[in-house]
Design a protein around this nucleic acid. Structure first.
Lengths: 392, 392
DNA sequence: GACACTTCGTTGCGCAGGGCAAAAAAGTAG
DNA sequence: CTACTTTTTTGCCCTGCGCAACGAAGTGTC
């Protein structure tokens, strides 16, 4: 309802992207007047989101020195994240720059009992906060989950591998933590994390292509996450890019997910005798260790993934496509193959630098979940409400 | 630079979509206060874009009657459109509701000489205006062209079938007509026309899929046309949805355009002995006349087109997909096949009403071209400058 | 050391535009 | 004619930005 705060969002976003930075520079970056920057900085500092950065910038020899501002990290505020996966929840507490300050992995006791899973996650999150960062105030909680998420309602509509349906994640977690909760899909959360804190940070539009046990994409354009009418945008799982002989539960053949998902590809490698167990991690390890057959298989998979990336380039034409896939992240051969295949397949011939592997390490999941909430904070920073105590 | 006028745009957009309408209704539709609506209506009326509609609305028996406002058509203002096709330019003069008030088709004298083509079009447009609607003031000129258009620069970067490259369409036409000129691609212009004036008018996001001698798509989300980094978004021409044995100039096989373009499909029908000449119009006529073989061929084509539509549903997840393709528009069998195939192929299972055939008749091209300019007017109506005399 | 100079940041003022509330307008019902 | 309802307008205030003047914090020069 209230479209205010857009100038403040521009200021905070510029400060996030350009580190400690002088106010005049922010004015140039945002197109705002220096006066507006000063006022917005004061407002944001009042909320504890910005600080006068002590570390001085290189002095340019003449004129008044900068008194740079920076995103307030490590001071007062935190954001919590819960990532719901097949076998466990990943909890994380992040500072405003998306850096992990505390983490915890909580296996599901009973994966079928969603109330127990969520209640346990909430309780452990409260304890994590109390034990590690009691002096910091959490501003909100972001939740990322695979499957189909209705962001507006905060409901996990369908999670295939967990078998959950219509779980009111937001309300359940909000009641247990007392925090504002935002829920989004795994892929969109990852895309947001990449845009806010990752290598794609300076780009306006990006597409994130995730390949794991599921295959999903997310589209960000002009600063906004594109969810689509039914929160279903980015459905690339069933593109017919693979061998038509490979059957898919959806009833057709050659679907991307049925072909290149971690599970499917691990089984293929296992059947080919390349690895002893059907585990994609084993295949990646073997390839990293120099096994030629394993490497070839990983590159084969990347080539198929690349076709999906190329298709997204042609249809959406974003600045960059970020790919999260084991081989692309771990193996230089795969990263090279990805760029080469995209360049060869896409009609818009994106530059090599427009194809990026994911830039996060093992903490991806927690960062992505927290990014769901951080995104909202950066989109409308003046609406950050008085911090509520965690665990109420 | 000036982000004002957004409220005025909301008001004018609501009035456009909801016909003659009371100010209080507009307030409800836009979320603005009645006071703001009144003030914006006054401003828009001052510019000649709105009028107090004489035609009264059904009176509800109590209270002050509505004094409805409506988009000012047939009064003062016009918008011109020039559509540049392979063999001719289509000129049109539209009122603010996108209705064609005058039209003209101008064949190219020398298709290679882009200056001559554009100069001729501009001159004929000036004459068309002088002869038919001299009392009306043109607010601007919209240009639609196939191929790759850089909207920002107003340059036709590449038009394959005409062989033009880097033609500064905007500047050439602006110099000849004295009007503000906006240029966009054929597909995006059509999409805009559908959203502004067509059956998809009430939807926030839509995808337009065009199948003619070229195949192209355009994406509109949240009120904005999505152009992509290089103005290349919507490239579906080379999706591998057809028979891989069909070669494409791009070097690969089975590309959508190589398979289902008017030319390609007409040749297929011709080779199959269904029609005497390789003309898609003949095939359509035959099907409309009841020829079973022709109908089957048209439906076959629609099925392939439907796969592209389904793919766009899954990736972009718009409210509606509008399809402009001869069979879908002319033959009920094709329209049915389209809906059925999309429902069967898309993962989001869009409702039948989310798949629409194009809603314009033979004047599509002129309407689309004008819509490029009308879109800009509706996006920022207060920026409509003092009308310039056409032909200066 | 006083002063000029440069650049950064802040403050006062004006203005645009929206919301709220009161008032005016335009009809019906009795 | 009066009461009532609903639409539309008007007056007032508030937010938030830009502009321009001013204050601040350094260096360089004489």
């Amino acid at each position: 309802m209230n479209p205010r705060g857009t100038a403040a969002a521009a200021v905070l976003g510029a400060v996030l992207r350009h580190g400690p930075v002088a106010r005049t520079t922010v004015a140039r970056l945002t197109g705002l007047s220096p006066a507006a920057v000063t006022r917005n900085c004061a407002a944001l500092a009042g909320l504890g989101l910005l600080t006068e950065s002590a570390g001085s910038l290189p002095y340019r020899g003449v004129g008044r020195p900068h008194s740079p501002v920076d995103v307030a990290t490590g001071r007062r505020h935190l954001v919590a994240g819960i990532h719901i996966a097949h076998e466990h929840c990943t909890l994380a507490l992040l500072d405003l720059r998306g850096r992990v300050r505390a983490r915890l992995r909580v296996p599901h006791r009973d994966p079928d009992d969603h109330e127990d899973v969520l209640a346990t996650a909430a309780d452990r999150l409260v304890r994590l906060h109390a034990e590690h960062l009691p002096g910091h105030v959490p501003l909100g909680l972001g939740v990322a989950a695979g499957g189909w998420v209705d962001t507006e309602a905060g409901v996990l509509v369908e999670h295939a591998s967990l078998g959950w349906r219509d779980v009111p994640v937001r309300d359940l977690l909000a009641a247990r933590t007392g925090l504002p909760v935002l829920v989004d899909s795994h892929a969109r959360a990852l895309a947001r994390a990449e845009q806010l804190f990752g290598a794609a940070g300076h780009h306006q539009s990006l597409v994130h292509l995730f390949v794991g046990n599921v295959v999903d994409a997310a589209i960000i354009t002009g600063g906004g996450t594109h969810r689509g009418t039914r929160s279903a945008a980015g459905g690339v799982a069933h593109l017919a890019l693979g061998d038509p002989a490979i059957e898919c539960p959806c009833g057709r053949g050659g679907c991307l997910e049925a072909t290149v998902s971690d599970r499917a590809w691990a089984w293929r490698a296992h059947r080919a005798g390349v690895i002893a167990r059907p585990s994609i991690a084993d295949l990646g390890d073997a390839a990293a260790a120099g096994d030629a057959a394993a490497t070839a298989l990983m590159v084969d998979r990347t080539r198929i993934v690349a076709r999906a990336a190329a298709l997204l380039f042609d249809i959406v034409n974003p600045d960059v496509v970020v790919v999260t896939e084991l081989g692309v992240i771990r193996l230089p051969e795969c990263a090279d193959a990805l760029r080469a295949e995209v360049a060869a397949t896409s009609r818009v011939r994106p530059s090599p630098s427009a194809v990026l592997p994911s830039s996060f390490g093992p903490d991806v999941l927690g960062v992505a979940a927290g990014a769901v909430q951080l995104d909202a904070i950066y989109a409308d920073p003046l609406n950050v409400r008085n911090p509520i105590r965690l665990g109420v």
